[in-house]
Design a protein around this nucleic acid. Sequence first.
DNA 1: GAAGAATGTTAGATCGATCTAATTGAAATG
DNA 2: CATTTCAATTAGATCGATCTAACATTCTTC
Lengths: 349, 349
Amino acid sequence: MTEQTERPVKKRRKGKGKTSVTLDDVAAHAGVSRSTASLVVRDSKLIPKQTHKRVRASMQALGYVYNQSAANLRTQKTRTLGMVIADISNPFYAVLASGIENECGDKKFMTIFADTAESVEQESRIISRLIEHNVAGAFLCPSGENSAKNLEALEKAGIPVVLIMRYLEDISASYVGPDNHLGLRMLVDHLAGKGHRDIAYIGGPPRKSSSRERYEGFLSAMKRNDLEVKDSNLRASAISRAAAMSEALELLQREDRPSAIICYNDVMAFGVMLAMLKCGLTPGKEVAVVGFDNIPESSLWTPSLTTVSIDAQNIGRLAAAELLARISDPDRQRQRIIVQPTLIARESS
Amino acid sequence: MTEQTERPVKKRRKGKGKTSVTLDDVAAHAGVSRSTASLVVRDSKLIPKQTHKRVRASMQALGYVYNQSAANLRTQKTRTLGMVIADISNPFYAVLASGIENECGDKKFMTIFADTAESVEQESRIISRLIEHNVAGAFLCPSGENSAKNLEALEKAGIPVVLIMRYLEDISASYVGPDNHLGLRMLVDHLAGKGHRDIAYIGGPPRKSSSRERYEGFLSAMKRNDLEVKDSNLRASAISRAAAMSEALELLQREDRPSAIICYNDVMAFGVMLAMLKCGLTPGKEVAVVGFDNIPESSLWTPSLTTVSIDAQNIGRLAAAELLARISDPDRQRQRIIVQPTLIARESS
DNA sequence: GAAGAATGTTAGATCGATCTAATTGAAATG
DNA sequence: CATTTCAATTAGATCGATCTAACATTCTTC
């Protein structure tokens, strides 16, 4: 049998000439094996810098582009994270995302954002897709209670998850969120310090963990300050200016109207302020109003709104750090990271 | 040589039992070939529904998870888009992103977001990474002039690009953005209609395409209305409240102060309003102020701000539609899609 | 009933990087 | 000098889906 020196001429694709340069091509050009070239792209210390330089030069010369897809298949890993958010258009999440980017960006991780539009089915569809994409980890801002199932799917697929802002009971994921309890204590203490004794609370929808925590925080802070909580001063409302406004109107039109109103968040506080204007009251004068979140508008209103600030950027950074840690050490204990809020005292109180 | 009936027993990985179920497993379970199973996952019409159902059942039974990475390698394609933004924390981009999600979400495309933090080097690093990831297409909100190079890299890699908001000359990418020219005409017409004759313009940084367009729009609209443009009434400023405020102070303290001021955008208009308050003037009374963008705050200020609204959500949707079209038809002509702004007349004018 | 079309299915090669285990040659050791 | 150790390199298998080209069957059609 004659050795036909059959060189398996690298098949150039199609007519287009649009072949991608592979590690094989680089290796041939540099006079090394593909294995060596592979070690070079990954900056392995097994390769002496002599060889390293030569191979890098070949890459440059040929216009080599690393093929992530191939690497992903082989290693059964990706350097991609998933971020599942209820509503991207909410500026809070935008800032959160920037915190995450900030922490992950340089670490060669890319982030896939997906919007569930507050729907659990949508969320589950997105999560299956993230699993198919084999993301290295995921941030999750749960849509509702039953997203527990979705979360399980992720964990079962071996994908570490960090919950943000909304906590889910009985779930073994990490969590990063604000200390709602403390936030409310700050507000109550602040108002009590200003001499307010008759404080009302307009809370958010009770199904959310943050609603519950803030509500409980309010009650316990009132108790600490030896202040009475009248049942008539406790209200729940949807998270919208309009809803809060109608709640506030009822409170304000009473004979014994409260001297201060704490709201679940800033948006609702704006509703309350509008209600006051309607009643001919000046927020911060006859009745104090305070909110929660410190969204950008809160400094712009007249009067400006006293509120509690939770640093979304910071939460994003912490969540990212935690997720990256879990990724590099899968056996790492799940953390529950609580971020301290800060009181921003302004004119409305 | 005895045939050892060596069945290459499917290698179950590691001790963990954490093997992934592959199409081979599904095929074996359903009693078909891998090829058939593959056609089934992709809902090919070549497969009769009888077989389809059986294979699907096997997938269900085995807990099969589609491996995107493998498909990506084989097909040399991904169903991933890249979105490169200068600053995610800007709420405008958040809304834009939600528009994009809205349009792409159901089409099985996922979007990778990346923040360039307004840096061109960062941008170029991100773009190489997107190319390595082999994204099917990309949205790009250019950081500056020299991002032209980055854009070329994408186009050279055969990745269709849609520019958003900021246009780059001499570049063959699609573009979606507002009609800045028309927007300014609307503002000028509006003010002229109210009887203003002495109108000042505080523009943005001249390097940006939108700055130039709005500036030119202003000039041409003034001409159309037969209004004189005083040089002293033309100013440029950085995009910040403070910068615009100091520009406005100079304008307002003049003997012949203008009766109306048009600002490059809303943020700067707020600065101008603050300057007026400082001078003891009421915006909308002695002097009118108008902005551009219609950011959420503009309805909240007192007085509320007259402005021109560009629908970010809509721009996102259009950009996504255009990108998807380019992806499915690479030879499609590049579009330049200009979105009509709308005038929002409020109290400040 | 033979030729052709249509339908359903499949074997085997393939995408491009990574990993394992092995090989080489040189240096170090006894 | 024989043996071990080490650094540098590499051949070949592998990840899991997709694609090409073919193979069986069954169904038409004249």
